[in-house]
Nucleic acid binder design. Structure first.
Length: 443
RNA sequence: GUGGGUGUAGCUCAGCUGGUCAGAGCGUCUGGUUGUGGCCCAGAAGGCCGUGAGUUCAAAUCUCAUCACUCACCCCA
């Protein structure tokens, strides 16, 4: 019989226990931060009706969306969810009467893309979103920035900055400079590459796309004027103060700055950066993107206001703003920057209880049960092997403590505990045993 | 969709111009130590050299095809 080659489908990954412990650690911190800000969990199916997804992405979706084939004939066309935002919009429109607004939900879950995978890009990857539905006030946007900053700090990132821009401000700048309305999407797309191809590259690309060279020059000089903090806003107000749309959006950004200040967001963790654009077309207000600044490692989080999206499913849309952590990227950087605490990565097991021979096994089991009842993660050696092998097993799995119990210990009412890192052993009386183990585990 | 690269043991790979080329390291297992891991030593298991055709006296090695994986571009997160 020929063996089946074991492999996951293209673009899909397995996460072995050592990886999962790290992922759970990161997910845990972010989840806890969501809770601190009053966000609550939502789960939706990984498949949606194709029409639900195609509504937003249109024809190009054909290449992006991962479709699902059902064996038997089934009228419903199904697709794997492409992101978590569209399902959110669907849920809000569908359960409007049951939800309490503002609706603050988070979701950490896998999404799927039909594209060909490449480095760091998969067909299945996790997204991690928190959104606020039903609040037009800028305090919602400011809260998301505060949330981002707290989560990243708690994960241990030392240097990062939330870049903040405003979609309407960019539109105002574009129109003020003379960019035709129908070419605004091109403008966003090109400026989005600023980090990658630089100012010259953006200029060149915009001219290639057919925008007048003088117009491009004027626009670029406005957005590349980089000054720190609110100074940037002062400058823009000077130049664009008479353009109504610009005036409103500058005012909104100022409001955000005020709120963030009051919430204690340090000013070195955010900046107004007019070259930052998010590619997605659905943003309508403030937009943000977080970058690791030192070392320069790129974007790890994005987001913004998209007041029109829910209108796909509903007569009137609802004001909505959201943030998304680039969780897969964050996980890679956590490794590269060595941000995991020492106890993450090896095993969940605190203590391995040895079994010296069959006659001792019941006593070992009793000991394991005592440890477990005391809240200590305990593994009982299940196989029948020499003590040396049992210790080697603990070593390989990086289990910190071993409890050895044999005839001698039983007679004396003792347990021998070995610390794996030092190799140090100590005889403990059975009565003091649990306390000592907890002390060794720093609990 | 376009263009590169790579397929040899569980893993990482070496095998140059075709002829002791079926190998190394790591890992696994056993023993040296009948109750003590990491180091060391000895030994063992494990591969029709991605698949199919062709050239040749002879192919892991050359040619063609095919499949798989991978990287970059496009696009996006």
């Amino acid at each position: 019989m020929t063996k089946i080659t074991p492999r996951p489908p293209k673009g899909f990954r397995d996460f072995l226990p050592a990886d999962m412990l790290k992922r759970d650690y990161v997910f845990g911190i972010i989840t806890d931060t969501f809770h601190r800000f009053g966000f609550e969990p939502l789960q939706t199916p990984i498949v949606e009706l194709s029409e639900t997804l195609y509504g937003k992405y249109g024809e190009e979706a054909e290449n992006l969306i991962f479709n699902v084939r059902h064996g038997r004939s089934d009228k419903d066309e199904l697709s794997l969810r492409y992101d978590l935002t569209v399902p959110l919009a669907r849920v809000v429109a569908q359960y409007e009467s049951e939800l309490t607004f503002p609706f603050k939900r988070y979701q950490i879950a896998p999404v799927f893309r039909g594209e060909r995978p490449q480095k760091g890009r998969y067909r299945e990857f996790y997204q991690c979103d928190a959104d606020i539905v039903g609040v037009a006030n800028r305090s919602a946007d400011a809260e998301l920035v505060a949330l981002k900053v707290m989560a990243l700090k708690r994960l241990g990132f030392p240097q990062f900055s939330v870049k903040i821009n405003h979609r309407q401000l960019l539109t105002a700048i574009g129109e003020y400079s003379g960019v035709p309305k129908d070419q605004l999407p091109d403008l966003y797309r090109s400026v989005d590459k600023f980090d990658k191809i630089g100012a010259e590259g953006v200029e060149k690309e915009l001219v290639t796309r057919g925008i007048d060279a003088d117009v491009v020059k004027r626009m670029m000089s406005l957005i590349t004027n980089q000054q720190t903090g609110a100074n940037n806003l002062d400058y823009l107000e000077e130049v664009l103060g008479h353009v109504p749309q610009a005036q409103t959006s500058i005012k909104e950004l100022r409001e955000m700055a005020t709120y963030m200040d009051v919430m204690g967001v340090p000013t070195d963790h955010y900046a107004f950066d007019l070259t930052m654009v998010r590619g997605l077309g659905y943003y309508t207000g403030p937009i943000f993107e977080t970058v690791i600044t030192e070392p320069n490692l790129g974007s790890i989080s994005g987001g913004g206001r998209y007041d029109d999206l829910i209108g796909i499913f509903r007569k009137d849309s609802l004001p909505t703003t959201g943030t998304s952590f680039g969780i897969e990227r964050i996980l890679v950087l956590m490794d590269e920057l060595n941000l995991y605490p020492a106890h993450i990565g090896g095993t969940v097991v605190d203590v391995l209880v040895t079994v010296l021979d069959e006659s001792i096994r019941p006593e070992s089991m009793r000991l394991a049960a005592e440890l477990r009842n005391a809240g200590i993660n305990t593994e009982l050696f299940l196989d029948d092997k020499k003590l040396g092998k049992q210790i080697a097993y603990a070593d390989k799995k990086k289990i910190p403590l071993i409890a050895i119990i044999g005839e001698d210990e039983i007679k004396a009412g003792q347990v021998k505990v070995k610390q794996m890192t030092s190799g140090e052993e100590m005889m403990l009386s059975r009565t003091a045993f649990l306390q000592s183990v907890k002390a060794l585990l720093h609990r």
